[in-house]
Simulated scan of single mutants.
Amino acid sequence: MVDSFELSKIAGGILAALLVIFLPKVAIEIAHQSHGHEEIKDGYVLPAPTETEASGSAEGAPAAAFDPAAVVAMLPTAKPENAASTFKKCLGCHTADKAAASKAGPNLWGVLGRERGTRADFTGYSEAMKSKTGAWTYGDLVHFLHKPKEFVPGTKMVFPGISDLADLADVVAYIRTLSDNPEPWPTAAAAPAPAPGAAPAAAAEPK
């Protein structure tokens, strides 16, 4: 019969074997944790940026220059009735009634076709405006209301301009109505050039 001493020796041998098997593994795990090592997991690899994205928009093609003629071509189909809210900004400095006096800016009644810087009851024109001689045309007014300081460098008008081209066309079409005899639409806008290959329109008979 196996006595208790023999059982103790067997148990001790089994325990020693277990320690030999598991102790190195435990020691390695403890060492990794003590050095802050963590298990490396597969990560998500971001796609490489395209050539366009890498270059950035700042290095892209420059924005096209503003073309007043493009807005003038929109005028015959513009909606002056939609310009009320935008034109209210003008009324902070201008009047629009025929009999009204000028305010901080000249009265806008009859401005289309009027010589620039010549409204009789307004004496606050800048030297830059007075030196830009000639009558206000559709193209001039479009350019001025879009970028005042570009069309008349040195102007006193602090209005930054109307950036939306549809709104700009509506406002100019509305200003056209501020007259006893509204200026006729420009010929180029009223009669666009025919498509290539199209037969020319017949000339109208004089009346």
Score class of each variant (00 low, 15 high):
103 K>A: 12
105 G>T: 07
106 P>W: 04
106 P>A: 12
108 L>E: 01
109 W>S: 01
109 W>E: 01
109 W>D: 01
110 G>P: 07
110 G>L: 08
111 V>H: 01
111 V>L: 08
112 L>T: 03
113 G>C: 05
113 G>T: 07
115 E>R: 12
120 A>S: 14
120 A>F: 07
120 A>L: 11
121 D>I: 10
121 D>Q: 10
122 F>E: 03
125 Y>D: 03
126 S>K: 12
128 A>T: 11
128 A>C: 06
128 A>I: 09
129 M>G: 00
129 M>A: 11
130 K>I: 03
133 T>L: 05
133 T>A: 11
134 G>I: 11
134 G>D: 09
136 W>C: 00
137 T>R: 09
138 Y>W: 07
138 Y>V: 02
143 H>K: 13
143 H>G: 00
144 F>H: 00
145 L>Q: 00
145 L>A: 02
146 H>C: 00
147 K>I: 00
147 K>L: 04
148 P>Q: 09
149 K>I: 02
150 E>H: 11
151 F>P: 00
152 V>M: 10
153 P>D: 06
154 G>S: 13
155 T>W: 11
156 K>D: 08
157 M>E: 07
157 M>F: 08
158 V>W: 09
160 P>A: 05
161 G>A: 10
164 D>T: 10
164 D>N: 15
166 A>F: 06
167 D>V: 13
167 D>N: 14
169 A>H: 04
169 A>M: 03
169 A>D: 02
171 V>S: 00
171 V>P: 01
173 A>V: 09
174 Y>F: 15
174 Y>H: 13
175 I>G: 00
175 I>M: 13
176 R>H: 04
177 T>N: 05
177 T>W: 06
179 S>V: 05
181 N>E: 14
181 N>W: 06
181 N>Y: 11
183 E>K: 15
184 P>M: 07
185 W>K: 08
185 W>Y: 14
187 T>G: 04
187 T>A: 15
188 A>D: 13
189 A>Q: 07
189 A>E: 05
189 A>P: 09
190 A>S: 13
190 A>W: 06
194 P>W: 13
195 A>C: 06
195 A>F: 11
195 A>R: 15
195 A>D: 14
196 P>A: 09
198 A>V: 12
199 A>Q: 12
200 P>G: 03
201 A>W: 03
201 A>M: 09
202 A>Q: 14
202 A>T: 15
203 A>F: 06
204 A>T: 15
204 A>H: 12
